[in-house]
Write a protein that binds this DNA or RNA. Structure first.
Lengths: 334, 334
DNA sequence: CTGAAAGCGCTTACAG
DNA sequence: CTGAAAGCGCTTACAG
């Protein structure tokens, strides 16, 4: 267990015959150092296999090089590849800029829980939030001057940087496509309505109805929770209450799959009798039979945008929210 | 941007009228401090909203409270929810023990790349590796005394701690099930054969053949790479070369889905004509039609086991490799 | 362009 | 049970 003793500035300075201050300057890219002395430092570093101690560096400089990615939820969130993909996009951008990603998967709960403690303890230079259920912690951290980025639209309108998919546009496009295909009675199974994304997708759906001069019949708007099971349950209820439903827009692919499985088990043809559109364009949309028509969002780009906004803030730049466009991907189900 | 100045030990010590050493003892749970003085410290901490500076603590103590999770691959790894789920298991166990997860998604490549530099820079107390393509870096880090855990069986037999699924047993059970169902000519589509998991699943398949006194016909063993597309390609080739194949064991669900989609498109009944078994029991196995018979591995448990092995090592305990059992989940496809 | 020195905020033998 | 003091390994005004 005894770690091998590693060299420090003192050793490098002695070997290169310069002061520690000069070592520090060279290693931090200060180009005011005389080239010859810089060369000697680099030589010593090379020869001794020196690695800077980032903890000491962090304490002295006040910068840790660590960015927290906080997923405000429990483990279940990762069974959906969505957040994993976003995280990988974030992580890639941060690493390119010499920053590391600290992953925290935990219900954020209050503004004083374990996550909050950690973020306030000075160990990270910034924090990126996913699936935020409340803005309380964000507001608090913002006051402390911690650079923040939210993935998804914030609930309140404090001016925090955020990135999001055009959920309204996606919901609109999905519903419009169903109607264009000839569906007259289109239902929606929403996601967890506590999330702004679910609300915005619903708004897109309602907008299409509004433009068509109609109002969705009672019972056509079903509050799901993004799970396969909730897709199944609501599809069953829908068919029972509205046997003439001919279009279903589910706010994610998983619920769409749940709905399709129920329809198929009941012998109802998709898309012949009922057309189904999902949201996300995840893997299951491609592998489904019939393949699922869905709204694609660029999840990696979402993560990269979040990382980029963080970098910009660390560089003291002003940042604007980023909203990424969606694409309708037409397959067999609608 | 100006962060609010936070109180330090000096302030707490003054407020509680004790020394900084005593503050440190109280905050680190040293119970040798007189209860009354400890109470005063806690009071001061509470009153001033004190948060320990973890960076300073790390420099002085040599422990950072950070564990690296290194995924030796590119972004694509996260489109498979597998690693996201493992990571969440790891992260939960670590957080319960006051440790944070630093996520690094990057091809590890050499023993001297960016990831290697970081791991050697003293910023983490240990490292957990996923999907390791080579043991070079592990060997190097082991020499430096960094606590390590590998998820998956290591390639060489240095005695590093690892956790893995019983891939051999799973491959055996899948193939045995196909034969028990009456399949005579069973093919396998393996995963990336550079991974030990893929090799072990293949070994399980071969063992069943061995016990049956037969040898798989030439062309029944197809080298896939875990992707949907490779499942499709190999299924096509298989049917062309062996029209009488009646069982396919794919080394993950995704390839099984690829194979099934090809069979269905060719009008070949699953499971009537060809039975198909996958591996993982991921979401798509449940949502597939016909639902996919597969080998379940407990992915969250795998992550938790990795986290637990890390904690044990940090506590100076000796650790043994952990192999988790698999379950055959019989659904409609076989 | 360069170095001496103070300092970042904790931890930990050591002596009592 | 407690405190004074040294130290962790860097960074950064400051003075030259």
């Amino acid at each position: 267990m005894a770690p091998i003793a590693r060299p420090t500035y003192a050793v490098i300075a002695r070997t290169a015959n310069v002061s520690e201050a000069t070592v520090s300057r060279v290693l931090n890219g200060d180009d005011s150092v005389h080239p010859e002395r810089a060369r000697r430092v680099h030589e010593a570093v090379e020869k001794l296999g020196y690695k800077k101690n980032r903890v000491a560096s962090a304490l002295a400089s006040g910068r840790t090089g660590l960015i927290a990615v906080v997923i405000d939820d429990d483990l279940s969130v990762f069974s959906d590849p969505f957040w994993g993909t976003v995280t990988s996009g974030v992580s890639r951008v941060l690493m390119e800029n010499g920053l590391q990603t600290v992953l925290m998967v935990s219900p954020v709960g209050s503004a004083d829980g374990g996550v909050a403690q950690y973020l306030k303890s000075g160990e990270v230079d910034g924090a990126i939030f996913f699936a935020l259920h409340s803005d309380a912690l964000v507001t608090k951290l913002q006051k402390q001057g911690l650079p923040l980025v939210i993935t998804g639209t914030p609930h309140s309108s404090n001016d925090v940087a955020f990135v999001d998919t055009d959920n309204f546009g996606g919901g609109y496009a999905a519903t419009r496509h169903l109607m264009n295909q000839g569906a007259k009675k289109v239902a929606i199974i929403t996601g967890d309505i506590g999330t702004t994304a679910a609300k915005q997708r619903l708004d897109g759906y309602l907008q299409v109805y509004r433009e068509s001069g109609h109002v969705p019949a009672k019972g056509l708007i079903c509050e799901g929770d993004y799970s396969f099971e909730s897709g199944q349950q609501h599809a069953k209820k829908l068919i029972a209450a509205h046997p003439d439903v001919d279009g279903i827009f589910a706010s994610n692919d998983l619920m769409a799959m749940g709905a399709m499985s129920v329809l198929q088990d009941m012998g109802i043809d998709v898309p012949g009798k009922v057309r189904v559109v999902g949201f996300d364009d995840s893997l299951i949309a491609q592998t489904a039979r019939p393949a699922l028509t869905t709204i694609r969002q660029d999840v990696v780009a979402l993560g990269e945008a979040a990382g980029t906004l963080m970098i910009a803030q660390l560089n003291g730049q002003d940042v604007e929210p980023v909203i990424l466009p969606t694409d309708l991907v037409v397959r067999a189900s609608a």
